[in-house]
């Protein structure tokens, strides 16, 4: 039994009837598991996690939920403008981001004979911008061009642009270049070849990407108001700090419904797009 346990850590050797020695394949899983456990324990101490604290105080979670629900329906009149702003911000941010991403993703895919060092450099810059969440852009922009929905829209557009370009050029790099070559041989320009031979192959994927970005943006746009970039976050911050939890409850409810409705519709359309 003890021997069996030890063999978790190093490969067993078997001697076969003909005298050959066979070694099991080395399995790193136990070592990785132990490393993960050590890191977990270390991080638990580092962040000051305490199960007793959580258990003792967890009723506050439900208490707060209780204060939020049922929500105060009358607050709808005050919040509808902010909610609308949030959706508009996500919509416009997605629209501008994806509109810009379309030509650029063709330009950046390695099918179209641009120098390799240039493509690598441009893609690297994009991946740096992609590491920052919308929130950081929103905060920076709210300082530069002032608080409001415009900063929110632009920051969503920047973020959308960086992820949509990546999704698109990866897809474009997998298309069949045969039709493109055929059009090139008829004397069409590069732009004509892309429009008529390359884009039709990724049209469905592109619209699916647009919808996907819209979904994620609606989710993330709610918080932007916290840093002054407009939308429902501004109102949420205020209502929570005044402890108007029933108002916050209504906002959460509306947000949840909006997100679920948009996600459901978008998912259905995307299913059709990918099939068609």
């Amino acid at each position: 039994m003890f021997d069996d346990l030890l063999h978790i850590f190093y490969p067993r050797e078997y001697t076969l009837g003909n005298g050959k020695v066979v070694k099991e394949k080395f399995n790193p899983a136990p070592y990785i598991t132990i490393a993960v456990i050590i890191v977990t324990v270390y991080f638990i101490n580092f962040t000051g996690l305490s199960l007793t604290k959580l258990v003792n105080r967890f009723h506050f979670f439900f208490e707060m939920l209780g204060q939020m629900f049922p929500p105060r329906w009358a607050f709808w009149a005050e919040m509808k403008k902010a909610m609308w702003d949030t959706i508009v911000m996500s919509f416009l941010g997605t629209a501008f981001g994806c509109l810009l991403a379309l030509p650029l993703s063709f330009y950046l895919s390695n099918n179209f004979k641009l120098p390799n060092w240039y493509l690598k450099g441009h893609k690297a810059v994009l991946s740096i911008f992609r590491t920052l969440p919308t929130l950081i852009y929103a905060r920076l922009l709210s300082i530069i061009i002032g608080a409001g929905t415009l900063s929110g829209t632009i920051s969503i557009a920047i973020f959308t642009y960086t992820i949509a370009v990546k999704m698109m050029y990866e897809q474009i790099e997998t298309i069949d270049m045969g039709p493109y070559e055929a059009m090139e041989s008829t004397g069409a320009t590069r732009m004509q070849c892309i429009t008529c031979a390359a884009f039709p192959q990724v049209r469905g994927f592109y619209w699916s990407t647009v919808l996907y970005c819209f979904e994620t943006n609606v989710r993330s746009a709610a918080i932007l108001g916290y840093v002054g970039a407009g939308g429902i976050g501004v109102l949420m911050n205020a209502q929570l700090s005044w402890r108007n939890y029933d108002n916050a409850g209504l906002m959460v409810l509306v947000l949840v419904i909006t997100v679920v409705v948009i996600e459901t519709i978008s998912r259905e359309i995307r299913k059709k797009l990918i099939q068609g």
């Binding site: 045969g178 055929a182 059009m183 008829t186 004397g187 069409a188 008529c196 031979a197 039709p200």
Partner: peptide, 27 residues
């Protein structure tokens, strides 16, 4: 003025036949 035909046809699969033929007029 030079047409070309390929072994793998090189059509855009996801569009109609007529649009494939029309792509020769795009130039």
């Amino acid at each position: 003025k030079i047409g070309m035909v390929f072994q793998s046809f090189n059509l855009v699969n996801r569009t109609t036949v007529i649009n494939n033929v029309l792509s020769a007029r795009v130039a």
